[in-house]
Write a protein that binds this DNA or RNA. Structure first.
Lengths: 137, 137
DNA sequence: ATCGATGCAAACTCTTTGCATAGCA
DNA sequence: TGCTATGCAAAGAGTTTGCATCGAT
């Protein structure tokens, strides 16, 4: 996944390629970490003060729908990041800045027999902590 | 963990044993599943219409502080359940009704070397799906 | 009697939505 | 030009809080 693929995916679905969407995508790619809607907003308005938070929310919805970004919940707020690869994996996440590191291991591989009385739909495995930068703050 | 332990823990910290707190605890124990604040509220007012949602929220905070309940996020809303045992384990959760089943396996046992540049604080492993009852609806 | 618990109403945060206008194709 | 994107303002949902009163010890 890169910006070209993302823009193509938008176009294919009839969504327009706007300056604001491109800014959002660039921020997501550049930052490479989980950001809240307000987090993205702040980063963009720094050097492009011509967009509103509503637009962030609306475009986040579209990006999610197109599988361009993925989300997780950090301290009660939804956070999003660019979906770098489409293969199944998990993350270790810095709860402070949202930085991520890939974890290749998936615990579902060890779940041999489905628990009685449940139909599994999905799962979540995330390790949380502090990255080196945030730890030393 | 049972209601006596919970009430003792409250008393030890100077919190009073009120009828409403006891109702909440009983509901948590009886239901044995993840409930949202409004979910608990609805269950209680059915036969005890003398409490407000504020009280639910305030007491949930206290119960969490005293490690009487544990929480997870289901469809964007915090859900809580009585913390039955204090040993470390994970859950499979019905995303519809909040029913849970214990999973003994912990993926952290397989994480041998700490990922570079991270200090781990905690982790989350949850399997989601439908319980038999909710699946057939 | 004292101090915590609760109800009420208001406030707050995050997020969504209706409507009129701006902007891409 | 035609239809989507955006801004503004308002509305919603979940949750928290100040204040006066109620209630447990």
């Amino acid at each position: 996944m890169n910006i070209t693929v993302a823009l193509n995916r938008l176009e294919k679905k009839g969504y327009k390629n706007t300056r604001k969407r491109e800014r959002m995508l660039k921020i997501f790619i550049k930052e490479n970490r989980y950001l809240s809607a307000k987090g993205i907003f702040k980063l963009i308005v720094e050097d492009y003060p011509y967009l509103s938070v509503d637009t962030i929310y609306r475009n986040i919805k579209i990006f999610e729908e197109l599988d361009i970004i993925e989300s997780t919940e950090l301290s009660g707020e939804k956070h999003y990041r660019f979906k770098c690869s489409s293969d199944h994996h998990h993350h270790i996440i810095c709860t402070d800045c949202g930085a991520v590191e890939k974890i290749e291991m998936c615990p579902m591989d060890a779940i041999t027999d489905t628990p009685e009385g449940f139909t599994i739909t999905h799962h979540k495995f995330e390790i949380y902590g502090y990255c080196d930068e945030c730890r030393s703050l």
